[in-house]
Amino acid sequence: MKRIKKDRILPFLKEMNKTQKVFSPQVSDNKDLMFIPLGDGTYDENIGKTTISPKIVLFPQTEEIISFRGNSISKITDSSKTLLFGVRPCEVKAIQFTDRFMTRDGLTDPNYMSRREGMTIIAVACHEPPSDTCFCIDAGRMPYLENGYDVQLFDSGAYYIAIPGSDRGEKILEDKNFEAASREDEVGVEGLKDGALRSQKNKPGVKDAIKRMAEDRVDEAFWERLADRCINCGGCVYVCPTCTCFNVYDVPSRDGYIRCRSWDACLHAGFTRETSGHNPRPTQGARLARRHEHKLKFDVINFGESGCVGCGRCSDACPVGLGAIEIIKEVNRV
C-alpha cells in the first residue's frame, strides 16, 4: 500500500503520459465530464461520473476495422498503450463484463482486445455516490473493487491511498510521486469502504426485477405502454458501459475502401429488420423489452450476472424518463 498527495497526481500522470496515452475525467468544451486525453495541466481534480463511460476508449464510437486496397485486405487494429485514470468501480465491473463477452466461446474481438491488452486501469473507489442515480450496490456490484484494476485509489482528503491489483500496478507505484502509506491509512481504507456502503441510498430493486423477469411476469402490454414514450434516440445504449452492439459499413478511401464500425442501438427498428422487410422485433415496445430482457434476464442466464452495473447513466441521459432505474421500478410494480 502506498499513497500520493493529490497535488502530485498531475506530475505523476505527465510522467505516465511519456510512455502511453493517459485519459482522465475532464470537463469538455461542451461542459460534459468526459474521459479526455491528458493535455498540459488539464487534469481535473473532480473525478465524478463521466457522461459516457470509459467504454469510449476501448470501443470507440466509430473505428476503422479493415482496409481494402486493390487485391489486398488488411486488418486494422490499435494496440497502442493507454492508461485510464479515475475509472469508477462500476466501470471496471463493466469492462470485466465486456472482456468476457468479447472473448466468449473462443471468439475474440481483435479490435477490442488489442486495446484492452494495452490498457492500464487506475480506479478510484467511491466513498460516496458520484450522483443520485448511482445504484451499484443494488445492482449487485460494489462502490470499491476486489479485483480487475491495476491500481485502486481511495480518497482520504489530501491524499489518495493506493493499492496495487496487478504486477503492472506494483510497478506503477514505484513512481517517485508515491510515498509509503501509514498504518492509519490502512485503517482509513476500511473506514472509507464502510462509509461507501452506507452512503448509497438509491435502491430501485434490481434483484426483485431480475426475479420477476425470470418468471416472465412482465408482458408485452407492459413494454408497449412504456415504449409509447420512447423517442428512439438510442441514448441509453450509447452511454451504457456494457452495450457494445455495432453496425458495419464501408466507406470509400483514397485508394480503396475502409470497413468501419459504429455504435448501434437495439432500439432502432433497422437493427433487427431482415432483408425481406420482416422485423422480429416489430414495435418499439418489443425493442424496449429486448434491451432490458438482455440486461436483466439473458445476461444472468449466460454470464451469471446482470448486464447492468448500476451506473445510472441511462437514467441521466434519457429525455423521457425511461432509464434502467425507472424501468426496474416499473417492473417491480407489476
Binding site: R229, I231, P319
Partner: peptide, 18 residues
Amino acid sequence: TMEQHPLIASKIIQTVTQ
C-alpha cells in the same frame, strides 16, 4: 412532434407522464 421535434416532444412527454 415525436417524429419531427423529438426533444421538444420529450418535454411534453415528461410533463404529461410525470
